[in-house]
């Protein structure tokens, strides 16, 4: 014979209801963070990826992951640092898989499209070389370089976002610039 359990759903509902209210408050708080950090997250992804549409997809995924872990990431400083890192990591993954896809398509394509005149333009060429040089940078230095390239973002703010000392930001930035200059000479 089946066992039955005696419950008070109404009282439990009170508990669940306050849980729901807590969730609503959490969601509201997250909404505020989304508005505050959305652009930063997008820019970090955009710094890695070549087109803004991909960067938006990555930023969206990063925000979704942040939302799932938001209960543990409510401290604003920790939240922003985590979000920047996850966005950067997701963008790197995205770029890697896009590159693999590109290579596969190049191998199997019957006709490889000729580069357009625009692609041949010097600026495009330089941008391409820059992307390659950026990819060769150590990840930590690359992230520092990207954040430091944002308008109005001082080194101490970069240090604050990444939760690392300013001295470390300076040395990583210096190393990244040197390596880029060397590659792009």
């Amino acid at each position: 014979m089946q066992d039955l359990t005696l419950i008070r759903p109404g009282r439990a509902a009170d508990g669940e209801w306050s849980l729901e209210l807590g969730k609503a408050a959490l969601k509201e708080e997250f909404e505020a963070r989304l508005a505050e950090c959305g652009t930063l997250v997008f820019r970090v992804a955009r710094g890695v990826l070549r087109n803004p549409e991909d960067a938006e997809d990555v930023a969206q995924e990063a925000m979704l992951r942040a939302y799932r872990r938001f209960a543990r990431l409510r401290d604003p400083v920790r939240f922003r640092a985590w979000l920047v890192r996850i966005s950067f990591r997701l963008a790197l993954d995205h770029a890697r898989s896009a590159r693999r896809r590109e290579q596969r398509e190049t191998v199997w394509a019957v006709k490889v499209p000729r580069p357009s005149a625009e692609d041949m333009a010097a600026s495009r060429e330089f941008e391409k070389r820059l992307d390659q040089a950026l990819e060769a940078l150590p990840k930590k230095s690359r992230l520092v370089l990207l954040l430091a390239s944002m308008d109005g973002c001082s080194l101490s703010e970069v240090a604050d976002v990444l939760q690392i000392p300013v001295g470390t930001v300076k040395s990583r930035l210096h190393a990244a610039r040197k390596q880029l200059a060397e590659k792009l000479r």
């Binding site: 959305g38 652009t39 997008f42 820019r43 955009r46 710094g47 803004p52 960067a55 938006e56 930023a59 370089l145 990207l146 954040l147 390239s149 944002m150 308008d151």
Partner: peptide, 9 residues
């Protein structure tokens, strides 16, 4: 990098 990192979504 500045122009890329200054883009708005």
């Amino acid at each position: 990098l500045r122009s890329r990192m200054g883009e708005e979504p």
